[in-house]
Simulated assay, not measured.
Amino acid sequence: MTSAPVLPPDPTTAPPALPRDPETSGTLALADAAGEALLQLRASTPLVQCLTNEVTTNLVANALLAVGASPAMAAVPGEAEELAGVAGALLVNLGTPGPDQRACVEPTVAVAVGARTPWVLDPVAVGVLSVRTRLAARLLTERPAVVRGNASEVRALAGAASAGRGVDARDGVDAARAAAAGLAARYGTVVAVSGPVDLVTDGTHEVRLAVGHRFLTLVTGAGCALGGVVAAFSAVAEPLVAAVGASTLLGLAAERAAEHAAGPASFQVALVDHLHAVTSDDLAARVLAGATVDVVGVPA
């Protein structure tokens, strides 16, 4: 926490658009940008302030350390806001919104917005549980850089009836496609929908990511860790690149970890190891192999 803060991308300056050839140059540009983002992340060690699920704090912090960021897990009113003003990025995960976290969230997001600190919303179990659903609806108006959730959570954020069961999705990724694009367009955000094939959209570009391993669904906190890694990437890259780079990095690390794991417990340990071991060239190559990019209109 003694490293200098990393200045976030300037939201008033439009990032360069991806090339409009979805099958070749668009994917190549995205792969190169993701690899470069990982290099910048590890060179700058951005401070990532996390208001996150207390059940998964340890895995989130270790994942951030493994990819090259510096985690701060402060959820104390007053301190949380101070950190948001100097951090490279902020993660807001609604997994266990106890009294202290609820008291922190909105003031901390307000400070982050004022300081132009990019922030990531992980709407855990939104649509199923009422307190966090109302909180998430208010937070959306502060325009997070990235919203990362499963299909049921994303559909619920867009106002659809939830088919989730706690943190588990009952909807497929394609069922959330219109909701994700609509949220992205309405709030000027990027929406990342996790599933067997991830979907990432800014309302114009739609990226499919075929990467990951089923063991990710058997480890408590894998999605929370992904939210933290998205935040770390957001400190050094524009939101679409951040979401794609983080999702691919976690998925690639999972694929490699599963090769040697006896089951979910050893997989979790190996996952952190491989998050640390993946290189920028590895990441760029996996984006190129696993991503498809389309340029689409916002679904009606």
Rank of each mutant, 00 (worst) to 15 (best):
A69R: 07
L135A: 04
R132K: 04
G88C: 08
V120H: 09
V126G: 02
E153T: 10
D174N: 12
V120C: 12
N150K: 10
V111E: 05
A161P: 01
G88Q: 04
V105Q: 02
A87W: 00
G95V: 01
A163E: 13
R116N: 13
R148I: 14
V92Y: 02
S130H: 14
V120D: 03
L94M: 09
A137W: 05
D174K: 10
A80E: 02
E79Y: 11
A115Y: 00
V109D: 02
P99T: 13
G98K: 07
V154D: 10
G78R: 14
P144A: 14
S130C: 03
E142G: 00
D100V: 00
V111K: 04
P97S: 09
E153H: 08
A151L: 12
A151D: 10
P99K: 12
E81T: 12
P77V: 04
P77Q: 13
R138V: 04
V126F: 05
A115N: 08
P118Y: 07
V147L: 13
V76H: 11
N150Y: 06
P144M: 13
E153Y: 08
V105D: 03
S152H: 08
T96V: 08
R102M: 15
A110M: 00
V113E: 07
E142Q: 15
V147S: 06
V109Y: 02
A158G: 12
G78A: 14
A160T: 01
A160G: 10
A84L: 06
G159A: 13
V147N: 01
A161V: 15
G85S: 09
E153W: 08
A75P: 00
G95Q: 08
T117M: 02
V113H: 06
G88V: 01
C104P: 04
V76E: 14
A137H: 11
A89Y: 03
V154F: 10
A175H: 10
T108F: 04
V76Y: 05
S70C: 14
R143M: 10
R138E: 14
T96W: 01
E153A: 11
A160S: 14
A84V: 06
R148L: 13
A72K: 00
R138I: 03
A175L: 15
P71F: 02
A87T: 05
R116G: 10
G149V: 07
L139T: 00
V86S: 10
P71V: 01
V147D: 01
P99L: 12
D122Y: 13
R102D: 09
D171A: 15
N150E: 07
V147T: 08
V131M: 09
A160Q: 14
G149Q: 07
L135G: 00
M73R: 01
G149K: 07
A115F: 05
